[in-house]
Amino acid sequence: MSGSRYLGRPVRRLEDERYLRGRAIFTDDIALPGALYLALVRSPYPHAEITTVDWSPAARLPGFVTALSGRDLADWLAPFPVPPQSAGVRPQRRYPRAVDRVRFVGEGVVAVVATSRSAAEDAAAEVLVEYRELAAVIDPEAALAPDAPRPHPD
């Protein structure tokens, strides 16, 4: 081990200076001509049915390109591939956005596309989503009860 260049010895970090001096380049620093930006409208509820989605107010804003709900995506896409399941566990149909029901706070409901990051965020703030809040369980022990609310009814 005494002949090792790295084991048991401090290794000088070479990348720190560019970060500390503000010279590092991140993905968000790269601007491509004609690129579009995406912002998500996220669920404020841990468990709810999505009753209506209206993005017509967002469509009136400058820079708005389109908006896609989970229902729109489910009509075009197959669900995510299901990994091999343990015995007795039923696979769930999962899509990139919530379809008909949200199952956690922050779950994506609508994807808004616009010509700039600020336009996408402004448009996302204008999307109107109505929910019917459902009971949620936050305690794992309570979730085992036979009468506990089920995020996946099937």
Rank of each mutant, 00 (worst) to 15 (best):
P79I: 04
A87K: 05
D100M: 03
A98T: 06
P84N: 02
A111Q: 06
A74W: 07
W76L: 13
V102N: 10
V112Y: 06
Y95E: 06
V110C: 01
P79E: 09
W76F: 12
V89M: 10
A123E: 01
A119Q: 01
V113N: 02
E121I: 01
R93S: 15
G106C: 10
V89P: 00
R103H: 13
R101L: 13
Y95V: 08
P96G: 10
L77K: 03
P83D: 02
A74Q: 09
V109Y: 01
R90G: 11
D122F: 00
A120K: 09
A114L: 10
T115Q: 10
A120R: 11
G108M: 13
D100I: 04
T115E: 15
R90Q: 12
R97H: 13
Y95H: 14
A78E: 12
D75C: 12
L77N: 03
V89Y: 08
R94K: 12
P81S: 11
F80Y: 15
G106W: 07
F80S: 11
E107F: 04
F104P: 03
V99G: 07
R93V: 14
F104C: 09
V112M: 06
R117K: 11
A124E: 08
V102L: 05
P91G: 12
L77T: 00
A111V: 07
S116T: 15
P83R: 12
Q92T: 14
V113K: 00
F104V: 01
G88D: 09
S118C: 07
Q92D: 14
P84Q: 01
V110I: 06
V113W: 01
A87W: 06
A120V: 07
A124I: 03
R93K: 15
V99C: 08
E121P: 00
S86P: 15
P91C: 11
D75E: 13
V89F: 07
A111C: 06
D100G: 15
A87L: 13
V89Q: 08
A124V: 08
